[in-house]
Design a protein around this nucleic acid. Structure first.
Lengths: 229, 229
DNA sequence: TTTAATAAATGTATAATTTACATTTATTTT
DNA sequence: AAAATAAATGTAAATTATACATTTATTAAA
């Protein structure tokens, strides 16, 4: 496509950066990579790339994510456009940031090595390039807002999980603790969970029952705009 | 600033579009203008303009808004980046959309004529260019989310207003009706409003008391993340 | 085989919040 | 003085949220 009509206007480099959250059963983590190009090569960074002229911004984000994680069909949404003139020290680049939620085990160790990627707990993040810290901070806020009305456990937990894991996830997101009786009561009352006839024996002698999400009910609640905690 | 490092990447035209909401005491309205350039010249459109190479995206939005409405220091936030390849029929243009809230009377009739602008009730919107309808729809959703936790009355109502006006605003945003006893109770319990010793006699023989926002309490609640209705 | 150890599962009473609902009040006009 | 009009106001019932401790299932050790 040619810009036949809009003459003499300033074209700008457009990038996408992706912040990827995962949950290891205990902590919320963000996936960072060692930056592969100058400037700041080798420093920790969000996954990013440039938007091509014939590519939608969404497609660019999907491409970057897929290229670096090997994952597709993951939960992703646009977060914010960072557009300060001096945000990238090497030139004018406006960045559209996306945030994604993945099941931490879906991301293969091989790809991790290949792209020099590493999971960091949110309270142990290293220094990152440019304005990426601002991006991460904003994404954590967005995640918290999101969680209020969207059952994100879906995206971050394995298909079968225990109530303990689910509660730990919510506690990690909100950085707080909940009374487990009240938490269980509330979550179960939503009809979102299906109790399985299977136990996870990993963490106790008694074992704890595994649950699955009820996808239909999830979609229903998403539409109606439920309110979680 | 020169892009000295990033070679051979695709630069893209960046635009900002602004959706401006106002409230006339009865309906929520959006401010549209007749598009001043080709293509689609003369059609209804959001206010927009191109981002300059040496200008932040935020600054571009502020500039566009200020240029066309004469207003500064108005409530504005970034909404979303629309980045489909074919969204603008005349070339590749990625648009960052902002949404703004203004007091409807602050926008002078003269400027309105000068820029061929017009307020439209949200349920009587005309056909608009490109993907502006999607932008408007998304902004209405955002406004509703916003209202849950932010006292936007501030931005949309005159400094002195009646409880009736405030309730009408919330009813317009949510497109519903509230019981006026419960609404009053709830709003007053937040300590957000200051009752004045003045009445507005415009709408009844008895007249209704005017209120002001308590700015300190507003900021406080904003920080704590209150929950409205 | 009994006992000890461990984490999972569960219930109830109280407090807080939300909802539903109709009458009285202040003022102006006739 | 009476009628008309919209504003202002309270209470009881239902729902939801909170605080809080014991019992249960299972395994490992005695």
């Amino acid at each position: 496509m040619k810009n036949t009509v809009y003459k003499n206007t300033d074209k700008i480099l457009l990038a996408v950066d992706c912040i990827i959250f995962g949950f290891d059963g205990k902590d919320l983590k963000a996936l960072l990579v060692k930056r592969a190009i100058e400037p700041e090569i080798g420093k920790w960074s969000l996954m990013g790339g440039f938007v091509k002229e014939n590519e939608s911004v969404d497609a660019a984000a999907t491409r970057v994510l897929s290229l670096q994680t090997g994952l597709s069909e993951i939960y992703m949404e646009q977060l914010y456009c960072f557009g300060d003139v001096e945000r990238d020290t090497a030139g004018r680049v406006v960045s559209i940031v996306y945030f994604a939620l993945i099941k931490i085990d879906d991301y293969s160790k091989d790809l991790m090595k290949e792209h020099h990627a590493k999971w960091f707990s949110l309270d142990m993040l290293p220094t990152v390039v440019f304005d990426h810290r601002k991006m991460i901070d904003l994404s954590i806020l967005r995640l918290q807002e999101k969680v209020v009305s969207h059952p994100i456990g879906f995206e971050l937990l394995p298909a079968k999980f225990t109530l303990q894991q689910l509660q730990a996830l919510y506690e990690a997101v909100y950085n707080t603790t909940f009374d487990n009786r009240n938490f269980t009561k509330k979550i179960l009352s939503l009809g979102l969970l299906v109790k399985l006839n299977e136990k996870d024996k990993g963490s106790s002698k008694k074992g704890s029952f595994l649950y699955e999400f009820n996808h239909d009910q999830y979609r229903q609640l998403n539409k109606e705009g439920l309110r979680f905690l």
